[in-house]
Design a protein around this nucleic acid. Structure first.
Lengths: 341, 341
DNA sequence: CTGAAAGCGCTTACAG
DNA sequence: CTGAAAGCGCTTACAG
């Protein structure tokens, strides 16, 4: 091992060939002879050579890295998605860059700068709530094909995306509650304006209609995915004269907040009301009572997002890869739901 | 805006100066005249110029990015730390690269490769559990000054680190339980071999000794920071003939698992036993009962780690920056602890 | 299968 | 204060 990292030149000298040959032996092994390949790899070992990525990136005009943009780095919901993304990126030799919408915005940077300045080849956006101005700039950018949305998306279906089965999952949740005997079913929604909130809420209403169940506007309680909103929603539920016997919450955090507040007010779940969530976060299983939920496969969602983006980046122009992938969700039945009394 | 990103050359042509001057106007504005500066910045605007990072990185021999290494990307405990790191990195124009120990290991990559191949200037390691072989390779590497541990660390104090007040926090926790009247205090530990586990456990034992409280080996229950381990620990506690009246858990997840299991077995917290955790994760406040905990300022921890690393990277060689920073913890008293009955 | 040479887009001594 | 020129470490037509 040398203390100064060695270059292609060093390897070439040791191997007694040109730098071109070393480069080929490393990147396109089948373009050189067997014996050359061996001498080069020996020389690489001896000198402890590592390719200099900055040089390679400059020469090949690729960054070999992808930016993942989160609405909020502090939100643990994304960690499994990141793991999936990272897994597939590293398999293909790409690095994963992380930034949060808020920080990028605060720093005055433009999002497309990451693409423009050769820091990243593409980006995966996990935030459907980008301000219109940013979206407009992304659309008009010549690099718009290097952008993919995951988990969330934006209304105009201009960018490819990967998402969970929000609508089917919601309908399956309602049907499940119906199947175990509930006829009065409420819903706590996500934040106003959010695409997931909208998908789940509209699917909820449709399924309630399809099952010809009672509909009351006050049974749809506005929330925002958070624990705190779940607590407030529980208070709203308690204050109702005519209460639903089951409540489908748009997220597990909502459901947990809802149950917490109920328990504080001496209501029992599922005896007094069945509560279920969406996501199946790690904690759902450990909650008291264990939470019935609609499981999102966040790891697979991340893996798929990375795979789709790389396919688009590496394929020559308009390779007919799919525009949207939908990841199946699955119903996980636990103790927070039961037949109405 | 052009469809092809423009280069320094383009800007120079528009501004009617040399590329050297454009470069200076951008990087060292006070090295050029006022009027030149203005013409250049106008030309930059017109051409939509963005510096090409790969070229700059190659030329300056810096990656302008830092690798953050996590034991497990799926673990939400780290998200706030990441946010802190990212905040300070982006302020200084650095990008944040993320990888997990497991993935790096699985892919057969060596950790130092990130430094060797010019992908990152330095790294922040959030995993004190690296295998000895990897640690040895890090130590012997010429780039060992570009590595910093955060949150966790490794026993031999060779690398600079940022950590929370694990020992003081633990002692303060025990003292608090003592202050409200407990004389029989137990502890659920983190995973065997973990540095945090060791720091907290040994501080626990010391403080129990200092307060001259009862000591029973079976009151120290082995765990591993997880919810599941907390459940098991509760079973162990239930099985004891002589039970502690308060239990200090080495993590909030442990405490939550402990309480969940107790509640399943019809024990009441804090009536039957006081339980407290360590970390003060978001959920602690919403738990039933709300969890008393020792709060770690994970955001500050991350910010400090980034600041220390950058200082070392940017300062000429052995700038006398501190070797270890310790982030204060604070006691958050909630409903899961009370005076013994 | 291999080598000489050009060039990716910057920054920075060096000279003026 | 400014410009011409070298060079960071690679990869890849091009020619043989």
């Amino acid at each position: 091992m040398m203390s100064k990292t060695s270059t292609l030149q060093d390897v070439a000298r040791v191997a007694g060939v040109s730098t071109a040959t070393v480069s080929r032996a490393l990147s396109h092994p089948n373009m050189v002879s067997e014996s050359t390949r061996r001498r080069v790899s020996k020389a690489v070992e001896v000198s402890g050579y590592r390719v200099n990525r900055a040089a390679r990136n400059l020469r090949t005009q690729r960054a070999h890295s992808v930016l993942v943009l989160l609405p909020d780095l502090g939100n643990p919901f994304f960690s499994a998605i990141l793991e999936g993304i990272s897994l597939n990126l590293s398999r293909k030799g790409y690095s994963m860059l992380i930034a949060s919408t808020k920080q990028v915005h605060d720093s005055g940077e433009r999002l497309v700068d990451y693409l423009d300045d050769a820091r990243a080849d593409g980006m995966i956006i996990l935030d459907g709530g980008l301000v219109a101005e940013v979206i407009a700039s992304l659309k008009s950018a010549p690099q718009s094909k290097r952008i993919l949305f995951a988990c969330e998306w934006i209304e105009e279906d201009e960018f490819p995306s990967v998402r969970s089965e929000n609508r089917r999952g919601t309908k399956a949740a309602v049907r499940y509650l119906h199947d175990i005997g509930h006829r009065k079913i409420g819903h706590v929604t996500g934040p106003e304006g959010n695409v997931l909130m909208h998908a789940r809420k509209s699917a909820f209403i449709e399924e309630i209609g399809a099952l010809q169940l009672e509909q009351h506007p006050e049974w749809i309680i506005p929330g925002d995915f958070s624990l705190a909103a779940g607590c407030l929603a529980a208070q709203t539920w308690i204050a109702l004269e005519n209460r639903p016997t089951a409540v489908f919450c748009a997220s597990d955090q909502l459901a947990m907040g809802f149950i917490s507040e109920l328990s504080r007010r001496n209501f029992k779940v599922p005896d007094d009301v069945s509560i279920m969530g969406f996501d199946d976060i790690d904690l759902a299983e450990q909650f008291i009572p264990p939470l019935t939920s609609m499981r999102q496969d966040r790891l697979l969602l991340g893996e798929t997002a990375a795979a789709m983006l790389l396919e688009r980046l590496e394929s020559p122009e308009g390779a007919g890869s799919e525009h949207a992938a939908v990841i199946p969700v699955s119903l996980i039945i636990r103790g927070s739901t039961a037949a109405p009394r």
